[in-house]
């Protein structure tokens, strides 16, 4: 097996939170946003990360590029640990890893023209290029992502959401990165525009041999684009498997509940579908349940679940559950 482009090992992210009214010397309360997440991502492949709001998807992405302090290891091509590099040494890898964001318009500076926005990573990482060179590359990249190059002097507010996301993609790809982190890139777009953006991403991935870390809460979108899918809950990996396997035979109760909630655009199927309802709310990440974090809402939880933290285990299909397997109709009732 070849070395993966990026391997994350036991990523932990802990925030100290203070409440209003706390004294300056009060010890901050710990919030563990991500705990013990590991994965491998090979060049040209896509890893989908799914989970509810607040389960640590975005925090995980930000931890990889050191936007939030994290512990663990993020190995680049198997040898360089990004988390232990000095900020100056990290700078080289910032052009290798680029990111696109959820809100297309908010991620573009309203006072800059398209040309300036897309050129920013080039101006940061390729100081050897002349102005004319940069402009030329920007125009080619705009053409590549489906924007008319003569729009180069326009401002972001003159574009639609889908076009703005294309601008974001152009900005990310202008420095020829090898890993693209997409933080819910299509959540804010219409369904028809979503499809266009996803297709563009897939096309660019094929042409540039990009690795993509694709974060979303829409399972059908993730299924469409991912080679492998990882399900997070309260900052922990619940299940991770190749996409087809996860969708065809989910083993973790949480994954099954999520999948059962995906609407099917066929009334006949939809009527007969068995939904696994999850009761209660997401527990507070300040005080996660003991043992398996999902046990408070799991239809199959037993006493053992409170005592032991289930390990995801090795292998291509990882599942952090003591009692994996398909949930039957009796259990739901």
């Amino acid at each position: 097996m070849t070395t993966p482009l990026l391997s994350a090992r036991e990523i932990d992210v802990t925030f100290g939170t203070t409440r209003p009214g706390d004294m300056p010397w009060t010890a901050p309360r710990k919030l563990r946003a991500v705990s013990g997440v590991s994965f491998d991502l090979a060049a040209g492949k896509t890893l989908g990360v799914v989970g509810e709001s607040g389960c640590g998807k975005s925090t995980l992405a930000r931890a990889l590029i050191r936007m939030v302090p994290a512990s663990g290891q993020v190995l680049w091509q198997g040898d360089t640990d990004l988390l232990s590099l000095s900020p100056a040494a990290m700078q080289r890898y910032r052009s290798e890893i680029q990111m696109i964001f959820q809100d297309p318009l908010a991620s573009l500076n309203p006072r800059m023209t398209l040309g300036e926005i897309i050129a920013e990573p080039l101006r940061t990482h390729r100081r050897d290029l002349s102005r004319a060179d940069i402009r030329d590359r920007v125009r080619r990249m705009m053409d590549r992502v489906g924007l008319l190059p003569q729009m180069i002097n326009r401002y972001p507010h003159e574009f639609s959401g889908g076009q703005c996301q294309r601008i974001g993609i152009a900005r990310a790809l202008i420095v020829e990165p090898r890993l693209l982190i997409c933080d819910e890139p299509v959540s804010a777009l219409d369904v028809s525009i979503q499809a266009q953006v996803i297709e563009l991403l897939q096309e660019l991935q094929r042409d540039l041999n990009l690795a993509i870390l694709f974060i979303a809460h829409d399972l059908s979108v993730v299924r469409h684009i991912s080679d492998e899918v990882m399900v997070l809950y309260l900052g922990r990996v619940m299940e991770a498997a190749p996409a087809e396997r996860l969708y065809a035979a989910p083993r973790h109760p949480y994954t099954q509940a999520l999948l059962s909630a995906v609407p099917v655009p066929d009334p006949a199927v939809e009527r007969d579908k068995r939904i696994i309802p999850l009761t209660g709310d997401l527990p507070s990440p300040m005080a996660p349940p003991s043992g398996c974090v999902f046990r408070t809402r799991c239809p199959r939880a037993e006493a053992a679940c409170a005592a032991e933290v289930p390990a995801p285990g090795p292998g291509p299909h990882r599942c952090a559950c003591l009692f994996p397997g398909t949930i039957t109709a009796d259990e739901v009732a």
Partner: peptide, 25 residues
């Protein structure tokens, strides 16, 4: 705002972010 985060993620220095992104806004 996300555009500041985008600039930070791509490795733009703090001084440049203030000059190029914050002050014009």
């Amino acid at each position: 705002r996300e555009f500041i985060e985008a600039a930070r993620a791509t490795g733009v220095s703090g001084v440049t972010i203030i000059r190029r992104h914050i002050v014009p806004n």
